[in-house]
Simulated scan of single mutants.
Amino acid sequence: MSDSAKLPQVLRQGARLTVKVGSALVVDAQTGRTRDDWMAGLAADVAALRAQGKAVVLVSSGAVALGRRYLGLTRAKLKLDEKQAAAAAGQPKLMSAWEAAFAGVGLKTAQVLLTREDTEKRRRWLNARATVDTLLGLGCVPIVNENDTLATEEIRYGDNDRLAARTAQLARAETLLLLSDIDGLYTEDPRRNPAARHMAVVEKLDAQIEAMAGGANAEAGVGTGGMATKIAAARIAGSAGCATLIAFGDVARPLSEDRRFTLIRPQSTTAAAYKAWIAGTVAPAGHLTLDEGAVRALKTGKSLLPSGIVEVAGGFEKGDSVSILTPTGAEIARGVVTYSADAIRLIRGRTSKDIEAILGYTSGDEVIHRDDMVLM
């Protein structure tokens, strides 16, 4: 990504893109209704990216803004139970509008509602990741939102910028695009200081950059995030090797019209960051001892199948990181398991086709997929 790259060019890089749209873009502040023409333009852009082989996950705000008008909740600041009620009423309206927008370009949509625990507890993270991967494989556009109807203050993300960053991690996206009411990061809030300087590229997030972040756009009246939450989101995404783009979103074709934006570079690649997390596990939850055939397979880049496992140690659960040992006890790799220790004890030494008959379910043919493993 060069400093002079145009926005559409940047979005075409990488295999996966996560796009976050705020309430002010989706919901008209005056009427309280969805902005159907704008949503149709975004859907057309997503269809064009998919035609180029790109996978797109959409994180959409707007449920509370739609629901509060529908339920007659007019106070500026809602209590938590009122937000939950507004979300319950507004979420089907939001999904209906997105479904109509994407139907117009021949794409199907699917709703994915998350709480913070879904992206911070490893087992639930794996389940959510598998769902998103399957939806993308089936040609759907996942529409992600926080499960505001159930989330309490203790388990809420607090804003959809951070939710979008966690979603980008979960989807293993190379790029996170935050469509905003401003065209990127400035040295100061440009609404207060017209002389503020736009920053095209941020090489590294530090205290000076964070100090530049301003507040939410009070003029919009429907959103909760500001530049500070976008910087926090960029830090989360960057830790997973995902670049963050902040761009003005209120244009007819938000993913294909060229305009100014801020690029916040990650400090690593998506794959390298994930592998580093696995390799850096301080205390693996257990270990798997393999036969020589499985060791040779792992060295050639294959996944770990149950047939090659001869011993299971530990009481780990699905989603835990474990150590993988040779027959002599030397650590050859570490990886994230798709089955619990008890389940692996039952299927070790058996072929993958036997898994469902033995366990009564299957989480896939692999005990550890090669993408979730790093050779030590």
Rank of each mutant, 00 (worst) to 15 (best):
A218G: 15
L255K: 00
L288N: 07
V222A: 04
S239C: 11
G215H: 12
G225F: 03
I309V: 07
R235H: 05
K275T: 00
S268I: 08
K275H: 10
A313M: 14
V310Y: 11
A233F: 07
P190Q: 14
K299Y: 15
R253Y: 15
L263G: 00
T244M: 03
L255R: 00
A232Q: 12
A220G: 10
E311H: 15
E219R: 12
R192G: 11
F248L: 04
V251Y: 12
F261D: 09
L305F: 14
V202W: 06
D258H: 13
R191A: 04
W277T: 04
Q267Y: 12
L263R: 02
A273P: 02
T224P: 04
F248A: 00
K230R: 03
T270L: 02
G221N: 08
S268L: 12
L205E: 00
A294F: 10
T269W: 07
I264T: 01
K230E: 07
A216S: 10
Y274T: 08
R191L: 06
G315L: 15
R191H: 08
V201W: 03
T269N: 06
L305N: 05
G280W: 03
A213R: 09
L305D: 05
G308L: 13
I309A: 05
A240M: 09
L205H: 02
T229P: 04
A237G: 06
